[in-house]
Simulated assay, not measured.
Amino acid sequence: METHESIILIYSSDTETIDSIFDFCELSQTKSLRLVTCPNEEALDDHLDHHECSLVFIDLKSFPDGNQLDAIAQRVSPKPTIAILPELDQHLLIRALRNGADSVFTQTEMRSDPLELVRCLDRQLQRAHAIEETRYLRDTLSKSLEELKADQDAAAQIQQRLLPPAEQTLDDGLHCEYILRPSMLLSGDFIDLINLHDNKHLFYLADVSGHGASSAMVTVLLKNMTNRLGRLYNRGDSKTLESPMALLKHFNREILLTSLGKHMTMLVGVIDLNNSTLTYSIGGHHPSPLLTQGGKTVFLEGRGMPVGLFEEPIYEEHCIDLDEQFSIALFSDGILEILEGDNSDEKEQNLRLQCQDFDLTPEQLLKRLVNSETEMPDDVAIMMVSRRC
Rank of each mutant, 00 (worst) to 15 (best):
L93W: 09
N252S: 14
H50T: 12
F299H: 07
Q364V: 00
V268L: 01
S20M: 08
G100L: 07
E346N: 11
I58Q: 05
H47R: 08
R119E: 10
N99Y: 10
I72F: 06
I194V: 15
S288K: 11
G295V: 04
D59K: 14
I131W: 05
D237F: 12
V104A: 15
G210T: 02
S238D: 10
G261D: 12
I94F: 08
C319H: 12
S215N: 00
F299I: 05
H4Q: 14
L193P: 03
Q68R: 13
Q152S: 06
S12V: 01
D89R: 11
L117Y: 14
I58R: 04
G261R: 14
L256M: 15
F63L: 02
L125V: 06
Q293I: 00
R95W: 13
D345A: 11
T3Y: 13
L300D: 02
D139H: 07
I84D: 02
D70C: 13
E42H: 07
K223C: 01
I18D: 06
A166M: 09
C120Q: 15
S332Y: 02
V380A: 04
V208L: 04
Q293N: 02
R181P: 01
L115F: 13
S243C: 08
Q293W: 01
A101S: 09
D198F: 09
I191H: 01
F105E: 05
L88K: 02
E146C: 12
L180C: 10
M383Q: 00
A206C: 09
H201G: 05
L202C: 12
